[in-house]
Nucleic acid binder design. Structure first.
Lengths: 151, 151
DNA sequence: TATTGTTATACTCTATAACTATA
DNA sequence: TATAGTTATAGAGTATAACAATA
């Protein structure tokens, strides 16, 4: 490590938030544009499949909290997944108000397919970077994910 | 530098694109949710103000290419900015088809205000990070911005 | 009464297609 | 003819408000 040029705590570069915010927004937009037209499911629906894959059976309210959408929006997403036979839904045995959602075998297949299609454009761009740059982005991705969940 | 553990070119971690893509998307969504209600202009309109601030007078077609929206969308954004007295618009003297757009003094004020409001949430989160983490994100932001503009 | 989820409705941002005006 | 921009229209994704069912 070279001599540090870092600011003391509290003295944060005022341009960083702007720069990061705009670059996040722009890449998010670009990713939406470069989405493969064969991807039949909405991005958010694929994200839900991913969550179900990791966590098993999850209550709808938990899905909506995790994806940070309102309950009616999650109802819509889950219905879309149900129509595509990607999830199954059942009332909680312990609380009849709760709807438990879980991945179907077909949903698992679709998740893998969509990941492949969805990652294609970005994978290609990442492959053109230097290995150090990919390492940097890998660590950055963890930080960004954590930031998203901060209160 | 320690001994490298990096992969050879072409051997890119297949999970990186997914991880980065999802974290970008999630943070973008969170930023949208945390937007200050006093921000009266759409995010994209503020981005246009920023571009005009850096570049001066710019043709509408160039704005739409840079923001990666279709021309009708940019027409709408520019009209919104014009209604708010943030930009002025005139036909190009050299080519009557072209509309040149530039920042008004009021637009400049609004840009500064919106940056402040728009960065507030993220600034606060960034301030809670370690200085090294902010450094990392600063470099990542440049990479992300560059990725957005790759063909 | 409070909570979970749904239905009904509306808003925001974007796109495509068809058109006008200028070159 | 080709290009820059606009108008008209539609679609995707989200939200709020009002409601039903369960606790």
């Amino acid at each position: 490590m070279t001599r540090t040029l870092e600011r003391r705590s509290g003295e944060v570069d005022p341009g960083l938030a702007s720069q990061l915010r705009l670059s996040i927004r722009r890449l998010s937009r670009r990713l939406a544009i470069e989405r493969d037209p064969r991807e039949s499911l909405p991005v958010n629906a694929v994200a839900v499949l991913g969550l179900l894959h990791r966590r098993g059976e999850v209550a709808l309210s938990e899905l909506s909290a995790h994806e940070r959408v309102q309950p009616p929006t999650m109802t819509r997403i889950v219905r879309c997944l149900e129509d595509a036979d990607c999830v199954v839904r059942r009332p909680s045995p312990s609380d009849g108000r709760v709807t438990l959602v879980s991945l179907s075998p077909r949903g698992r297949d679709r998740l893998l397919l969509h990941r492949q299609l969805g990652d294609a454009w970005l994978s290609q761009r990442l492959a053109e970077l230097a290995p150090e740059e990919r390492d940097l982005l890998s660590r950055a991705a963890e930080l960004l994910e954590a930031l998203s969940h901060r209160d």
